[in-house]
């Protein structure tokens, strides 16, 4: 553990990232955007409310909206931060030197992943005071906020590992970046679209059924369990998950399947990155 905490790549990456003025600008603009959204939401809701005050139900709505928006922001930023971690070292001609040191491939890959996602974690933690706004108006429990933060962390790790994988496999950062964004887009937008299509077909079967037990189609479930936005939205509004369970006939909670599938993706991506970082010297 001590060895990992004082890992040289991690130390160096932290130094490089936080010495850069761009990092602080990024943090500033991220918090500004969130603050504008929160204040704007409260302002508009107060204006449109006949009583002229902000109700706990509205506060809950704001929390949901903010959480989903923050998740989308995270999914947008993660590929940008991770898809160049190895390929940029290669392009900068520093990777070969690093690979001739005594550092293990696992140490290099994990340090790169952790250092890049630590910036995202900083964004999330820095946004927590803004989140505390919702407590002023009620409707949300601290455990819900905590669960959301844990969910974000897991999602960042999973999607970040994909960025590191493509960055290891693909030589050019720009190509790695495009590939990671394309895969992320599919896992967010593509699976949402396919879930909707599958649900439509499922609804059709459901209504057409004349027998006692309606037929089910599992496709919507498999698509939905890969979609971070649907899983998060369903945790706020259980009706979404209930509808998916009803149409697909699969009762396993979506978040369980989400955690299992993305753990497999994470472990697979990291192991493959570690294996591919250095050449297989035994095989010419």
């Amino acid at each position: 553990m001590k060895h990992f905490v004082i890992n040289p790549v991690l130390n160096k990456e932290f130094k490089l990232r936080f010495r850069s003025f761009k990092s602080f600008l990024g943090l500033l603009f991220y918090l500004l955007a969130l603050a504008i959204l929160i204040i704007g939401f409260v302002f508009i809701e107060s204006l449109t409310s006949s009583q002229g005050f902000f109700k706990p139900e509205q506060s809950r709505m704001m929390f949901m909206m903010l959480s989903i928006l923050q998740l989308i922001l995270i999914l947008f930023i993660t590929p940008g931060l991770t898809a160049g971690v190895i390929s940029s070292e290669r392009e900068r001609q520093t990777l070969n030197i690093m690979l001739t040191t005594a550092q293990s491939s696992a140490s290099i890959v994990l340090s790169k992943l952790i250092s890049s996602i630590s910036y995202l974690m900083l964004l999330i933690i820095a946004s927590l005071p803004l989140y505390s706004f919702v407590f002023l108006y009620g409707g949300i429990s601290p455990i819900q906020v905590l669960t959301t933060v844990v969910y974000y962390s897991f999602t960042i790790l999973a999607f970040g590992s994909l960025g590191v994988l493509f960055s290891t496999l693909i030589r050019k950062t720009i190509v790695s970046m495009v590939t990671t964004y394309a895969v992320t887009l599919f896992l967010v937008g593509g699976t949402a679209f396919l879930t909707l299509i599958s649900l439509q077909f499922g609804q059709g079967y459901y209504h057409m059924s004349s027998s006692g037990t309606p037929p089910t189609t599992p496709y919507a479930y498999f698509m939905a369990m890969l979609n971070p936005v649907i899983v998060l939205a369903g945790s706020f509004e259980p009706e979404i998950h209930d509808e998916i369970h009803r149409i697909t006939g699969i009762k396993t909670p979506l978040w369980v399947s989400y955690v299992i599938s993305y753990t497999i993706i994470f472990v697979g991506a990291i192991l493959l990155s570690i294996k591919k970082l250095r050449p297989n010297m035994k095989k010419g």
Binding site: P8, K12, K15, L16, R92, Q93, T94, I97, M98, Q103
Partner: peptide, 23 residues
């Protein structure tokens, strides 16, 4: 190597510390 790059936010001293720690 014949061609190599350097990290733009590291000082000479830190550069050597980084590689020393890597060993």
């Amino acid at each position: 190597p014949d061609f190599f790059g350097v990290y733009d936010q590291l000082k000479a001293n830190e550069y050597l510390h980084f590689y020393g720690a890597s060993y």
